[in-house]
Write a protein that binds this DNA or RNA. Structure first.
Length: 480
RNA sequence: GGGGUCGUGGGCCAGUCUGGUCUACGCUGCGCGGCUUGGGCCCGCGCGGACGUGGGUUCAAAUCCCACCGACCCCA
């Protein structure tokens, strides 16, 4: 068989991420940017099916931990939004407002829904018996970003899940934060993503939160992307919103709250960017809208046998509960190969006259771009093997990428050098915002992402930038 | 926030500097037919745009001027 080297369709994403990313979004039919409203794009079927699978995974985690779905209105009266001072200060500049008619108040398109949920929580919560209250919604939110927008990464409209939980004690609320982290971690592992979990610095917290924890995902060019946050709100909202309950001891108390926001659009962006290559999308089995594509290689006079075999394989895949497609369209096989590779289908099964006669099938793995023969009767077993192995390979690659990016530094000059090399920095830090601003200035945009909490890091010296005594080890990186 | 580039069939674009020869090139797409199918075949016929929007200059504007709208990229 003469095997031509297929043409690479995309640039190296590590060298020119912007170009790679725009091209893949368009060619893999993920988004269409021609809606011509800044920061708003059309999510196409290939993307929505991916996002729905991401959503299912996270919603499953939430449901298993006692959350229930709700749907709150898109609009929030400005008076609600203004009830918590830090919150409105943090968001006011980027709120889309709808001017009220004569005598009516202005409305905001939700930038996030704390101030929509909590007036209702104050009506619904009366007794410790009403707690915990754990509700979530999967919706779009709206933020009038002033910075350059980028589809899925920074849009003025994006999709997320937001969970809003209320508890009778601080301990329970803090446990919820840990649970949120667990839910996110489980999901991200199924997506094959590498990430770090950090506690954000004081000045970088969610507006209105006591504590903010974030998942930063490693992206091409050594940048990071925040893909989920969970916040301990304490009683910062329950006081102004008057969410009180009568406890067992007969005392009225304010609830302790948490909110959790895994970003679906951004998780999709992370999956696309982490796994994709010069041939297009690469999806792990778990979130691939089409997991296996069966491609017939017709030959005159044998169509019936060949197509028959393809549909027979389809039936076997159906029984395996695999999302599959038998591509019996009229294109040439080669053009189908390109297409399904571009769309990231993890496994392709090719069936021609050779396979029919030898009772074998040809497998092709998208992640390794490797082809091999499989005995027909071992099909199911091999599909399951591949499914598992693809995730393992993608995950390892992602983690290797993260590990090779991390570098510990001891001084400002080492930090500047690391930033030039596109590294993610670990360093001792004094904790002062002033010092963080200096870091950003000196490195051309590196930010203190926070104290790493998924891996225990002990302080080994003084603050790398100012030399004062360090209180923690922080992750420093350039963010999207 | 600063800078750059751009807007012409469904997609990518040539043409704009030097206004007329442009109801406008080419590729791709789409439709029909033929031939075929082991990595994007090929052949024939056909479809499809008055050039982002508004105004101005001019005998004449895709082309020059102004404003607006929108997009993309880069740097902070």
């Amino acid at each position: 068989m003469v095997q031509l080297q297929p043409e690479k369709a995309f640039p190296d994403k590590e060298k020119n991420f912007s170009e790679w990313y725009s091209l893949i979004l368009e060619r893999a039919e993920l988004v269409d940017i021609r809606y011509n409203v800044k920061g708003f794009v059309v999510y196409r079927p290939n993307l929505m099916r991916l996002i729905n699978l991401i959503r299912d995974e996270l919603e499953r985690g939430l449901t298993e931990t006692g959350h229930q779905p709700v749907l709150f209105p898109l609009v929030i009266p400005m008076s609600y939004l203004r009830k918590e001072e830090e919150h409105i200060t943090g968001f006011e500049a980027e709120v889309f407002k709808i001017k009220g008619e004569e005598g009516e108040e202005d409305l905001a398109l939700r930038p996030t829904s704390e101030t929509a949920f909590y007036p209702m929580y104050s009506l619904w919560i009366h007794s410790y018996r009403d707690l915990p209250l754990k509700l979530f919604q999967t919706v779009t939110v709206y933020r009038k970003e002033t910075k350059a927008t980028r589809p899925l990464i920074r849009g003025r409209e994006f999709l997320w899940i937001e969970a809003h939980d209320a508890f009778s004690s601080k301990e329970e609320a803090l446990n919820q934060v840990s649970e949120d982290i667990r839910i996110t971690r489980n999901a991200l592992e199924k997506f094959g993503l590498a990430f770090i979990v950090v506690e954000r610095e004081e000045w970088d917290k969610f507006p209105g939160a006591e504590k903010t924890f974030a998942f930063d995902c490693i992206m091409p060019e050594g940048k990071v992307l925040q893909i989920a946050t969970t916040h301990y709100l304490g009683t910062k909202f329950s006081v102004p919103f008057e969410i009180v309950f009568l406890d067992r001891d007969g005392c009225k108390k304010h609830v302790h709250q948490t909110c959790f926001g895994p970003g679906l659009s951004r998780m999709a962006a992370a999956i696309i960017s982490t796994h994709g290559d010069e041939f297009g999308l690469v999806l792990p089995f778990e979130v691939a809208p089409i997991q296996v594509v069966v491609v017939p290689i017709p030959k005159e006079g044998f169509e019936e046998k060949i197509f028959g075999k393809c549909f027979e394989i389809g039936e076997r895949l159906r029984k395996l509960n695999v999302r599959f497609k038998v591509d019996d369209s009229e294109d040439r096989p080669g053009s189908k190969f390109y297409k399904w590779e571009l769309f990231g289908v993890p496994l392709r099964i090719e069936v021609g006259i050779k396979e029919v006669e030898e009772k074998k099938v040809t497998f092709f793995r998208r992640d390794l771009r490797k082809r091999w023969q499989v005995d027909e009767h071992l099909l199911e077993q091999e599909v399951l093997n591949v499914k598992e192995d693809i995730l393992k390979v993608l995950k390892k690659k992602a983690y290797d990428r993260l590990e090779s990016s991390l570098v510990r530094i001891n001084s400002r000059s080492e930090g500047i050098e690391a930033s030039r090399n596109g590294k993610i920095i670990l360093m001792n830090f004094c904790g002062r915002q002033e010092c963080a601003e200096k870091v950003k200035e000196d490195t051309g945009g590196y930010e203190i992402r926070g104290k790493r909490i998924d891996v225990e890091e002990k302080v080994w010296g003084s603050c790398a930038w100012c030399g004062r005594s360090a209180e923690k080890v922080v992750v420093v990186a350039k963010a999207f």
